[in-house]
Design a binder for these strands. Structure first.
Lengths: 196, 196
DNA sequence: GTCTATACATTGATAGAC
DNA sequence: GTCTATCAATGTATAGAC
C-alpha cells in the first residue's frame, strides 16, 4: 500500500466512504431493491456526484464484496486442519455483532442464485472456494487422526457450509435461542475426536 | 370446495392463472425485483387488467404464499414422530424437481429478513411453526425410544431447519453433488436409533 | 470533484371507455 | 372483465456549468 497525496488522496477517501455507505444500504435491502441515490444520501452527496467515482451500480456492489473478502481471507490464512475450524467458530461468533453484514450476504447470495444477477459468478465461485478449503481442512484433520472414522471430508464440508448458512438465516429471522458461534462449535465437534 | 358457475367461474380461473404466473415470476427474481406488468405479460393480459383481480402487488404475493402453504401442510398432516421426518425427506426429494419454488422461498425468506418487507411477518411465523412442529416430532420419537440419548428436541429441530435451508441454497448455486432428499435423510439419521 | 438539470425507462396505481 | 390512456414517483445515467 503506497502513500497517496495530492488530488488522489481525497478521492481515495471518498471512495472508501462510498463503499462503506453502499455496504450499509445493500445490507438493509439487498442489491436490487437499493438505489444509488439512497447510497449518495447516506454519504452526503448527490447521486451524480457519487457516480463520478464509480462506473455504475454493479461496480459499487463489486467494490463492497471485494473489501469484505479481503478481510475474511486474512483470518484463515496460515491455518490448517482443526485450527481452521477454530477460526471459523470465531468468525461466526464475531458476525453476531455485525447483523448488517450477515444480512447483506444472506440476501445477496439468495438473489445471486439467478444467473442474470451481477453477482452470480462471484457467489458461485465463493461457495465453491469455501467448500473446497473446508474439505481440505477436514482432510488434514483426518491425516492427523483427529477426524472421526467414516467421515467424508467433502461431505462434511458441504454439510457444514449448509448448516452455517441456514443458521444465519434463522438468526436473522429473530430466533433468540440461536448463538452462531456456539452452535457452529457444537456442529463441528460431531466430526472430530477431540472437542474444538 | 363448492361448484362455481356463471360469472364467478371465469373469474376464479383467471385468479388461478394469475397466481401461477406470479409464482413463476417471483421465483425468477424475488418479490422486489419483479413487476406486475411482467406477471400480466406472462398471463397474457394488460397490467390494469390484472390489478382488477388483485388489490395490489402485496396481495399477489400473499396469494402465492397461501397456495404453496396449503399444499405443504397437507403432506405432513396426520403424521407423528419418525413419520414426520420420512415425509420431510420426501418433500425435499420432490423439491429437487421444482427449482423455481425453492428459489422463490430462498430469495423471499432472505429479503423478508428486513422487517419492512411485506412478507416479514409471514416468514418469521412460518419458521417458528416449522421449528416447533419438528421439535414436537423429535419429542414424540424420544418417547417411543427412537431418538438417540442426549439429543435435545428443540436443538435438533433448529439444526435440521438450518441445515435444510442452507442445503437448498447450495443446491441452487449449482452444487451437483447435492441431493436434497438423500442428504436430508442422512442428516436426520444422526438423531435416530433406527435409520429412516 | 461536485453540483444542477435533465433525459429516459420503468414502476405501481387510477380513471374511464367499452 | 378488460382495455387504453395516463399519473406521479422512482430508477439509472449523462451533459455541462462551476
Amino acid at each position: 500500500m503506497s502513500m497517496q497525496r495530492g488530488q488522489y488522496r481525497k478521492s481515495a477517501q471518498r471512495r472508501e466512504e462510498i463503499v462503506e455507505a453502499a455496504f450499509a444500504v445493500f445490507a438493509r435491502s439487498g442489491y436490487v431493491a437499493s438505489s444509488v441515490s439512497e447510497i449518495a444520501r447516506e454519504v452526503g452527496m448527490s447521486q451524480p456526484g457519487l457516480l463520478h467515482h464509480f462506473d455504475g451500480k454493479p461496480a459499487l456492489l463489486q467494490a463492497v464484496l471485494e473489501k469484505r473478502d479481503a478481510k475474511a481471507q486474512q483470518m484463515i490464512a496460515g491455518k490448517a486442519g482443526i485450527d481452521v475450524f477454530r477460526a471459523l467458530v470465531e468468525i461466526s461468533a464475531e458476525s453476531q455483532q455485525q447483523r448488517g453484514m450477515v444480512q447483506l450476504y444472506t440476501i445477496l447470495s439468495a438473489e445471486a442464485t439467478n444467473s442474470a444477477h451481477p453477482a452470480h459468478e462471484y457467489f458461485v465461485r465463493r461457495s465453491r472456494l469455501i467448500v473446497t478449503e473446508m474439505a481440505q481442512a477436514f482432510e488434514t484433520a483426518r491425516e492427523r487422526r483427529q477426524l472421526n472414522p467414516g467421515v467424508s471430508p467433502l461431505q462434511a464440508a458441504l454439510e457444514s457450509v449448509a448448516f452455517t448458512e441456514g443458521l444465519q438465516l434463522l438468526w436473522l429471522q429473530g430466533f433468540v435461542e440461536v448463538d452462531l458461534g456456539e452452535q457452529a462449535r457444537t456442529f463441528f465437534n460431531r466430526y472430530f475426536c477431540e472437542p474444538l
